[in-house]
Structure formats: structure tokens, C-alpha cells
Design a protein around this nucleic acid. Sequence first.
DNA 1: AATAATTATAACCTTTTGGTAAGTACTATA
DNA 2: TATAGTACTTACCAAAAGGTTATAATTATT
Lengths: 110, 110
Amino acid sequence: MEKNLKINPACDERCPVRASLSLLSGKWTLMILFQINENTVRYGELKRAVTGISEKMLIQELNMLVENKLVSKKAYHEIPPKVEYRLTELGLKTLPIVDQLAQFGLENLV
Amino acid sequence: MEKNLKINPACDERCPVRASLSLLSGKWTLMILFQINENTVRYGELKRAVTGISEKMLIQELNMLVENKLVSKKAYHEIPPKVEYRLTELGLKTLPIVDQLAQFGLENLV
DNA sequence: AATAATTATAACCTTTTGGTAAGTACTATA
DNA sequence: TATAGTACTTACCAAAAGGTTATAATTATT
């Protein structure tokens, strides 16, 4: 009988943790998802909410998230511009991850 | 009445998500925690399990994790060397995060 | 003697990531 | 006429992260 009753499969290309991280790693990604959360948020609101992020990174990340179907974008064709972001069905499914990150931070770090 | 019933505080230095990420972001960190999981794992086992990681990154991450008290290290003074790693109490508390990452990957990506 | 096994360490280099600063477009307002 | 507000874009640069290769130490095995 082995010591390790619960044996993890190796962490290769098919590893689900690796797959998730390839999408969600990055300095700002999960913080942006956390801020959008279940709300409808404008670009400018996000910029203020995610303290310290540069405009370049913010739209770069938003574009990436839209491309990967985690976030949907709605542009009103007005002047001045108005663009709203929200989580898609798929994006909402990342919230449990974000919640666990928040809980861990709250209970052990902050 | 506002549209957003659930208002998130801004994501500044005190943001718990940010705090967690400052510890756990990085290409390999969460995968290593995932592999160690509830087991006692030797360095060489980890190297094989976390496919593609370089030795440099593996010990660098392990040292970081030990320093931050997420992982404990037990060295047997034998030849050839034998070193075992396991999660501390604090480290075990990251497993819900890892589990959510795994679940998201499993259900939506892999 | 030489090789294998194990857990590292160090020097060097490349790639990735992120930051800075400036500019665009259009209108309302002062 | 100048400024402010909004959502971007681009070019350039700096820093962080990660990869490669070589090396160490010690013993058992071949």
C-alpha cells in the first residue's frame, strides 16, 4: 500500500490548473474580473477601481478577456464615448476562483 | 436607487485579491501547490510531476513558498540526498483556490 | 575508475510583461 | 478659443520572469 492515498496526475498540458492559469494568470486579470464581478462597469470606472493599472494594460486585458469570451463589451455610439463591460456566462464561472482568492487574502494576509 | 446593488471596494493595496496574487501569481506557484496537495512529496517527484519546469524555477519557487510559510521542508541527511515538501496549515488553505482553478479548467477548457 | 542518483547553486542570456508618455477623435462647456 | 471628458492607440523603454548550461557533493553500483 502506498503512502499517498490521493495521487494527483502529473501537471502536463492537460492539467486543468495549468489550462486555467494560461487564461487567468497575469498581474491584473483576476483583479479586473473581481472588479467587474456581477456588475456592468464602464471603462473609466474600472480604471479608477483597479488602482495603479495603466490604460495600456487595462484595455489590453479587456480585449484579451473579450476575445476569450470571459467579458462582453457594449459600446454606445455617443460623444463622449461610453463603453460597458460585463462578465459573460463563462466569465461568471471564474468568480468562485476570485472569491477564494479574496477569502484567502482576507483571512491570512490583509 | 443605484443599478449596482453589490458595490466592490476599489482594488488598492488592501484588496485581498491583490494580496493573494502577490503571493501566488507566477507561472508555476499554484501548480506546485496543486501537486503537493495533501501529500508529502520529494523534490524529484515534483520535478517529474510538474512537466516542463526547470530545476532553477522549481527550487526558486519552493524556497519562496517555504519562506512564506506555505510549504515546509524536511531534509534527511542521507546520501543521496532526500528532501520532502508538504503544505503547512497555511498552505493547505490555498487548496480551495487551486480546486476552483482545477474545476474551472475541467469544466470549460480541457 | 567511471557512472548514476539526488538535491541543489550560479552565471548568463532571452523572452515576456508591464510602464511611460504622447497622441487621436469628437463634442460640450467655459 | 481653450479646456475637459471619454475611450482608446502607438512607440519606445525598463523590469521582471523564466530558461539553459555547467557545476557541486557524496555514496553505491558497475
